[in-house]
Amino acid sequence: MLAAYVAKTSATDPFAGLVIGERPAPESREHWTTVDVAAASLNHHDLWSLRGVGLPDALLPMILGTDAAGTTADGRRVLVHGVIGADGHGVGPTERRSLLSERYPGTLAQQVSVPTANLLDVPDGLDLTVAACLPTAWLTAYSLLFRACDLRPGDSVLVQGAGGGVASAAIVLGVAAGLEVFATSRSAAKRERATALGAAALEPGARLPRRVDGVVETVGRATWRHSVSSVRPGGTVAVAGATTGDPDAAELTRIFFQEIRVQGVTMGTRDDLAALAAFVARTGIEPPIAEVLPLADAERGLRALDAGDHFGKIVLQP
């Protein structure tokens, strides 16, 4: 089967080890199901894997990808939850948690095999290309807003770094849920897109009209001080990444004096994913999709993701 996989990793030239070529189809395995992939979306996790972060040479070659939607042999339309081993289904009770493409082959292929318990039915009316955008970035955004920050309609949130998958998802979900959403970006074009999605868009570091109830933080060093200074006393800064690295200063004095809560997030549970898919289907909202490409053009999509000039998700279709 055709797949996009890592043959070797490189911290300095991540695309040197990327191969688009044939890999063995998944073998039948008890308590696992093979899915014919209809669509798979890209995430920064794929770029980290190419650089060798969390992917040792002993596990190479490894098919990339954590997100997918497709069909099973009996025609069931399914959404893949990419967290493996969180509660033992299909892999044994002592299995440590991992994501697809870390210990088991990922979704950037014509087929992927996952524990059967990791499959969710795609709600009626939800397109598989849209569904494929949900399991990593959108699930993370959902967890940041509604689990970590515990936001409710009428609350306010600051989303740092508008344009990336998690940030754009947080904007769309927040607006649909009745939140007042502020968003920052260095790019005027991305600020315009954020405004079109219903956010009040600002330049990085700009003073907000008032402090917010929560902050969605995926940028790190470049925005951390602004995040901590923009949240109200007792509010939450929810963190799911640090694309610019760790902050030079943790701002601990402000954090303890203002009683600010800092909460880390890594994706979410299958129940969270089911709730997210139902929310998307019922409200009719759709993930901003920057580009849909054939699987054979995976390198083009990954390079676009690495450049960071896009707004929304990049999707591959086998």
Rank of each mutant, 00 (worst) to 15 (best):
G178N: 14
G268Q: 05
V175G: 10
F256L: 14
P209M: 14
V262G: 14
P233A: 13
V280S: 11
T266W: 01
F279E: 05
I289W: 02
V262W: 02
P233L: 00
A238T: 06
A196V: 13
R303S: 12
E299C: 08
S227T: 09
G241R: 00
P204Y: 12
D213G: 15
D306F: 07
A206L: 08
M267V: 14
L305D: 09
L273H: 01
G178K: 15
G178Y: 07
A238G: 03
E203G: 14
V280E: 06
D297R: 13
D213V: 13
V292P: 11
G205S: 12
Q263D: 00
F279N: 10
V280H: 05
D309E: 10
I260C: 07
V239L: 02
A249S: 15
T236P: 08
R254S: 11
A298D: 05
D246R: 12
S230V: 02
A222I: 06
A298T: 03
V228T: 02
G308Y: 02
I260R: 04
T236Q: 04
D309N: 07
V262E: 04
G301H: 06
E203W: 09
F311W: 03
A277C: 07
W224K: 01
G178F: 14
H310P: 02
D271K: 06
A201F: 06
A298V: 11
A194I: 11
G308K: 06
L179F: 10
F311D: 00
A201M: 03
T243P: 04
E217D: 07
S230T: 05
L208Y: 14
R210I: 06
A296G: 15
G174S: 12
T184D: 10
A290S: 13
A222H: 13
